[in-house]
Design a binder for these strands. Structure first.
Lengths: 231, 231
DNA sequence: GCCACGCTTCGGTCCTGGTCGAAGCATGGG
DNA sequence: CCCATGCTTCGACCAGGACCGAAGCGTGGC
C-alpha cells in the first residue's frame, strides 16, 4: 500500500507549532504579511520566511507580493476545511493548545470558520434555519427551501452560485460537535452580519464578537444562543 | 491566537511516513495486528509498537487485545475523513508517494474510502444515482428520493439510520476531485457489491477489484465507468 | 543617492524524535 | 514445564529540521 497521494508532506507541514499558528491566524480569511505571521507564530523573521516558503511549496498558502510586503492567504477553502477536521479530532482527544484561557469560551461561542460562522452561534443559526423551514434537512443533507431563498433575499444575501460551491453545506463544528452552516449561504450570512454591525471580528483572532444590540437582533432572527458548549 | 484545539499533535502524528502507512493500511476498515502494521510500514516491531502507542494516545486508533494479538482499527470515520481531506490537498499539490506505479491506476479506478466506494467507479455511481432520479442534488446537498429509497430496498440495502450518520453524504474524491457517495447508503451499496460478488478488495490495499461479470452488472445498473481519471 | 524597511539566503548550533538491538513479559501450544 | 510467538520497554545512536545571527537584496521614502 504505497499508493496514492503522500499525506505525510501536508501533515508534517501542519505538525509544526510555528506553521500551525501561522495557518490558524490565516483561518480568519484575511491576508497577512510575513512579518505579522512571524509575530503571530512567535519566531524571528528568518525562521518565518523558511516556514512560509515550505507552506507555499506545499500548496497550502498563496503569496502575493505588493511592494516590499509579502501577503499570504490560505490557498483555498479546502485548506481551512482540512484544518477544521483535524481540530475536531484534536478536540475529541482533549489536545488543547494550552490550559483553556479566558478567551477560549469566546472562541467556542462564536468564531469565523474561514468565511462563515461557527461555534455556538453558528450551530444555533443552522438549527433555527431548519426549524423555521428555511433549510430542509434530509438526513444530514442540507437544501435551501423556497422560503429560505426568500429569507436570504430579504436579509440581503446574494446567492449567485458562482463556481461549483454548494449553496448550503453542513460543516462539522469542533467545539459543539454538531453541524453549522457553510457554503455560499453560510458565507453570505456572515458577511451580512458584519455589514449590519451585529458583530465584528476581533483583530488577530478568529473570535466573532457580537455587540449587545447585535446579539439581540441575531437572537430575534435566529433564536437564543445557548451559553455553554465547553465540557 | 493561541486558542482552540491543538492541531499540531494530530498533524504531527500523521506527518510521519511509518505512522501514515499504518493508518493508510487501516483505511480499508479492517482490523490489523501490530505485526502486520509493522510490516506494512516497513519498520521493526519495536518501532511499530512505539508508533501505535502514540496513535492510540492521540485518539486516532483503537486497540483491542485478543489473546496475544493486538488488533488495531481506526478510531472512527472522522479519522478516515480527515485523511481523505489531506489526500486531496496532497494530490492537488502533486505530492505522490512515489512515482505513480502500475497499481496506482487501479487505486484511482475503484477503491474503498473506509466503508464506501471511491474513485472513478464511486463517482460514476453517484452520477448515475442522480441522473436516475434516485438521489436529488440540491446544489451540492444530497437527498434520497422516494425512487431511491425503493431502489435501495430492491438492491438489498438496509437503511436503518442508526446513530446520527446521514443517509447520503457527498465525499470529495481526491483522485477525481468530484464527489462520490458516502453515508449509510454509500456504505450499504458497497457492502452489497461485495455480497453480490461483483467485486472484492485486494488484500493489503484499498483497491476494489471488479470481476468481469461483476463490472458488467455494475455498469448495467449504474452506467459505464470512465476509463481515465489520472492526469 | 542614501537610508530605512521587509524579507530572504546562508551558515552554524541544538535538540526533538525516529530507529533498532537486546532484554523483559505476557499468552498459547506441546 | 519449557519453548515459540507477539508485543512492549529500555537504552543508545543518529539524522532531520527548527532556530537564530549575520549578511544580502530588493522596494520605497526622502
Amino acid at each position: 500500500m504505497r499508493l496514492g497521494p503522500d499525506i505525510t508532506r501536508i501533515a508534517a507541514l501542519l505538525g509544526d507549532p510555528a506553521r500551525a499558528n501561522m495557518l490558524s491566524a490565516l483561518m480568519s480569511g484575511e491576508a497577512l504579511t510575513a512579518g505579522e505571521l512571524a509575530r503571530e507564530a512567535g519566531v524571528t523573521a528568518q525562521t518565518a520566511s523558511s516556514h512560509l516558503a515550505q507552506l507555499e511549496a506545499g500548496g497550502l498558502l498563496t503569496r502575493r507580493i505588493q511592494g516590499r510586503h509579502n501577503y499570504f492567504t490560505l490557498a483555498g477553502r479546502d485548506v481551512a476545511e482540512a484544518m477544521e477536521h483535524l481540530a475536531l479530532l484534536a478536540d475529541r482527544a482533549g489536545h488543547m493548545r494550552t490550559r483553556p484561557g479566558p478567551r477560549d469560551p469566546a472562541l467556542r461561542r462564536a468564531r469565523v470558520c474561514y468565511d462563515h460562522l461557527a461555534g455556538d452561534a453558528g450551530v444555533a443559526m443552522l438549527d433555527a434555519l431548519i426549524s423555521q423551514g428555511r433549510i430542509a434537512d434530509h438526513e444530514g443533507a442540507l437544501a435551501l427551501t423556497d422560503a429560505g431563498r426568500a429569507f436570504a433575499r430579504d436579509f440581503g444575501v446574494c446567492l449567485e452560485t458562482t463556481g461549483r460551491r454548494p449553496l448550503c453545506k453542513a460543516c462539522l463544528d469542533w467545539s459543539v460537535r454538531r453541524s453549522h452552516l457553510a457554503g455560499v449561504l453560510g458565507a453570505g450570512l456572515l458577511a451580512r452580519i458584519y455589514e449590519l454591525g451585529w458583530a465584528r471580528r476581533l483583530d488577530g483572532t478568529r473570535i466573532v464578537a457580537f455587540s449587545a444590540p447585535g446579539l439581540r437582533a441575531f437572537e430575534q432572527t435566529f433564536g437564543p444562543v445557548p451559553a455553554a458548549s465547553g465540557a
